[in-house]
């Protein structure tokens, strides 16, 4: 899918006004969910610098949302980048798939 080794800074400069909409489904304080929260928080800090609308949904509290979005496996991140959101399942330990989903693949962290 994403050519993750590609380094192309020039092409990856998006219109800075664009905000990224994402939803992270977690299961309370369960281990994988905690890891995903931390990884995503770090990701947003490093790459998106406030240009993000993130909703965190706990399936234990909101099973209807889980049902609506067919969330069977948790944690899962939905990135609303097109009509059909990109679905990334797991602890998000690797930033590349998320970068690809928000159109920033190949970017270096903003320090």
């Amino acid at each position: 899918m994403a050519g993750s080794t590609q380094k192309d800074k020039a092409g990856s400069e998006p219109e800075t006004t664009d905000r990224v909409r994402m939803a992270l489904f977690v299961t309370g304080e369960e281990r994988n969910s905690q890891a995903a929260r931390m990884n995503l928080a770090r990701f947003c800090e490093n790459y998106l610098a406030g240009r993000v609308d993130l909703e965190i949904i706990d399936v234990l509290e909101n099973h209807r949302k889980a049902l609506e979005w067919r969330v069977l496996l948790t944690p899962v991140l939905l990135v609303f980048n097109s009509e059909r959101p990109t679905r990334i399942t797991g602890t998000l330990q690797d930033p590349e798939p998320v970068l690809a989903a928000v159109g920033l693949h190949g970017s270096e962290p903003v320090l």
Binding site: M1, F25, T27, E30, N32, S33, A35, A36, N39, V59, L60, H63, R64, A66, L67, R70, V71, L72, L73, T74, P75, V76, T86, R87, I88, T89, G90, T91, L92, Q93, D94, P97, V98, A101
Partner: peptide, 24 residues
């Protein structure tokens, strides 16, 4: 609950979502 074959896997995950849906 049909599974999205285009979903991307990154790291560990589990069945809690399914259980929450069933429970609810």
């Amino acid at each position: 609950a049909h599974i999205d074959h285009e979903m991307i896997l990154s790291g560990r995950f589990d069945l809690h979502g399914l259980l929450a849906i069933i429970d609810g």
